[in-house]
Amino acid sequence: MLIIKNAKLRAVLGWVIPFILIPGVIAAGIFIFKEKRYAFITLAVTVLSLLLFISGYERKKTGNRRMIIVAVMTAMAVVGRFIPVFKPIAAIALITGAYMGSECGFLVGALSAVISNMYFGQGPWTPFQMFAWGMVGFFAGLLSKPLCRSRILMLLYAAVSGIFYSLTLDIWAVLWYHEGSALKSYGAAIIAALPHTLAYTLSNMLFVLLLARPFGEKLQRVKIKYGI
């Protein structure tokens, strides 16, 4: 009932969000609230950028095969999350992005966050997970050529993306908790989360090391065999 059926309206949304709404929210946060409402601004901007990507994807014509491969890889990432301790979502988003392009990488990262949280619990962290994992896949797609050529570069990217993911979520948690008070323990919070960040980064690299070859070869093969 609330579906935006009008294609023109959707196209308008694609312009309004990046050029009016996002700067508007940031300006409102700075000039109207006057206080340091970073947590609210970052949440609003994250949600809006996700909406922007979705509306862009909705308008685009993509092949059915490509769409199904996104679904398959998303389910793979979620199934992998059931293995205790390890969370291969970032690694799978990375590999998908590198071999299938930024758009697929982003979708796999963002959608796995939604689906795995259906099992593990949704929360205010869901948009940030969507954004962080989506970005890992997106940039892997942009760096596709060097990443596919060199395994060492891919591992390096996995390490960077692990740190990026942890920082994105930690930073927001700190911003939220300390809203209205000074932000001086900011560095302290990041240092406190260091063991966790390190473990996540290492597991991320391990996953890429283990999964890059089987997944890469297979995605490459499917791409050539079916001309996706």
Binding site: S55, M67, A71, T74, A75, F82, L111
Partner: peptide, 24 residues
């Protein structure tokens, strides 16, 4: 709720949701 934003995305989501138990 997702489908109200994007039917295409909802389709991918529902297929992925079905794949999770299938793959397990």
């Amino acid at each position: 709720v997702f489908g109200s934003a994007s039917p295409k995305l909802a389709l991918i989501l529902s297929m992925a949701l079905r794949y999770v138990p299938l793959f397990s």
